[in-house]
Design a protein around this nucleic acid. Structure first.
Lengths: 99, 99
DNA sequence: TGCCTTGTTCGAGTTGTGTCGAACAATATG
DNA sequence: CATATTGTTCGACACAACTCGAACAAGGCA
């Protein structure tokens, strides 16, 4: 499978990032990745079907919040913390620290 | 006209706040209020009709982002910076500093 | 009282977004 | 090769959200 396209930090859009974070399922994914560093999709699926998860990962990827690295049959996801913090200083930290 | 109900900071929901901020029109309103401190609705209307603006103000008010003070026929809006920062430290600042 | 200003409310229309099953693609593994 | 595992893609559906005109309410003012 071909590698994913990840947007350049200079093109990150605030409204797009905020909208990506404004969903409970995606917020959960982001919080989980912040804890474990890297995870494949399967370990992040709770009760939701794969197709729903795939959708959420795409939204997060397209907004610039996470990157997906392909290793064999697995897709390893991790937060793009540095890039995000360069473009929107303090934003991700504030979201992760929020109750 | 009766005063508005403003939610208690303890009940602010992160996803609700993020969704409220994730709209270009509302982000513009928030940025404007950050500059001028307080403003009535009329001065914030660009080309959009009043009914659209009223909707956006309600979303911002219900999420806890701004408060509306009634003075005669005018509704004066201002950001709830302290309350927001108590509940979600650094969030509003990060959003306001973002490009 | 009559009129203007300021905003809200209502209803309809349109678009956007999340959800999910089914089919598909790619990679391991026996 | 056959099969299981991991994710994506597609299509359809439901629901939430934005937009906007029209009608309404409340204040200020002549």
């Amino acid at each position: 499978m071909a590698a994913y396209d990840h947007p350049d930090p200079a093109t990150f859009e605030l409204t797009v990032v905020l909208r990506a974070l404004a969903d409970p399922a995606r917020l959960e994914i982001v919080r989980h990745l912040a804890r474990v560093g890297e995870a494949n999709c399967a370990t992040l699926i709770g009760t939701r079907p794969k197709s729903s998860m795939s959708h959420h990962f795409q939204v997060l990827r397209d907004s610039g919040i996470l990157r997906t690295r392909i290793e064999g049959a697995q897709h390893r996801n991790s937060l793009r913390r540095e890039e995000l913090d360069t473009r929107f200083p303090g934003l991700l930290t504030a979201v992760l620290n929020a109750p």
